[in-house]
Amino acid sequence: MKKNLNYKKSKLLKIAFALLVAILFTSCNATKSVIASGEASDKLSVKQVIKQHQKNNADFNTMQARVRIDLIQGENEQGYTFGFRMEKDQVIWLNAPLGLARMMITPEKVRFYNKSDNTYFDGDYKLLSDFVGVDLDFTKVQNILLGQAIYDLKDGPHQVSVSGNSYALSPKDQNALIELFYLINPSHFKMDSLQLQQLQKKRMLQVDYASYQKVNKQVLPQNIRIIAVDDTNEVTIAMEFKSVALNDAVRFPFNIPSGYKEIIIK
């Protein structure tokens, strides 16, 4: 069954809305907002900026939270709070109450089901990649959620300059098809912003981090704003992480109910 890109996006939005039906309560560890008090210096080398960014990647085994999501497309806006669990490098799991809808992302697959229309998807990252206009995999999705660079900064030389009060980091040799820029915070060396453009395809992905929070000595994003543009289509996703808890025992139950209709993307 063939579907055009606009249909794919509207279908994914529908599924996302179903996933974000209500609140999953989780335990809450002590958290506090991180105040960015550092000052960017042009004396810091590109190697030092990269080293600090990689050093400050959050170190934990599991994470769970309540996440407020606002989805904006044109004049349409909807917001919900839903449950979030992660086992770092292994699983990202979303859940609506009573198992009405559920999503599980692993390095190999993207899977979800929706009881409101008895449908399910069991496939690769093409659906998410088409949605944001950038080729995604598990590591890129996880890094966006954790405020880390989506590509390995050791792959090729980079350059750095001071922009406002951030370190502007970019590859020395930009890909002819993709332009990539990171803005790194001088206080905790997590991302202030990610900007990725595919000019020929009129695609753009921008991820802004308005604030961070400290949980068990780990610095994690608190407010993330994702803007995805594909030609004239634009989708904005605003995320607020609440009640974040690290290293608790968590489960990732996922079973697609029998009799559901598969969503096939070609």
Results as ranks from 00 to 15, higher is better:
67 V>M: 09
56 N>I: 12
78 Q>L: 14
85 R>T: 03
68 R>E: 14
101 A>C: 09
63 M>L: 13
96 A>I: 05
102 R>Q: 08
100 L>M: 13
66 R>W: 04
70 D>P: 08
102 R>N: 05
90 Q>C: 07
37 S>A: 01
65 A>H: 01
75 E>D: 15
57 N>P: 12
62 T>W: 04
81 T>F: 04
75 E>T: 15
53 H>V: 06
59 D>E: 14
83 G>V: 09
99 G>V: 09
101 A>R: 05
83 G>E: 06
48 Q>Y: 05
35 I>C: 01
70 D>V: 12
89 D>A: 10
79 G>T: 09
49 V>C: 03
69 I>A: 06
48 Q>P: 06
44 L>H: 02
69 I>S: 10
60 F>V: 02
96 A>G: 10
48 Q>T: 05
81 T>A: 09
90 Q>D: 11
56 N>W: 15
47 K>N: 10
93 W>R: 01
43 K>M: 12
80 Y>C: 12
45 S>G: 07
63 M>S: 02
82 F>R: 10
77 E>R: 13
97 P>T: 05
88 K>L: 03
73 Q>V: 10
80 Y>M: 15
36 A>S: 11
100 L>C: 07
37 S>T: 08
82 F>I: 14
60 F>M: 07
77 E>S: 14
56 N>T: 14
56 N>P: 15
74 G>Y: 11
65 A>D: 00
92 I>C: 01
101 A>Q: 06
79 G>S: 08
52 Q>P: 08
82 F>S: 13
65 A>L: 01
100 L>Y: 03
53 H>G: 08
100 L>T: 06
48 Q>H: 05
45 S>P: 12
82 F>T: 13
65 A>G: 01
49 V>D: 00
92 I>F: 02
68 R>A: 11
66 R>I: 06
60 F>S: 03
57 N>T: 13
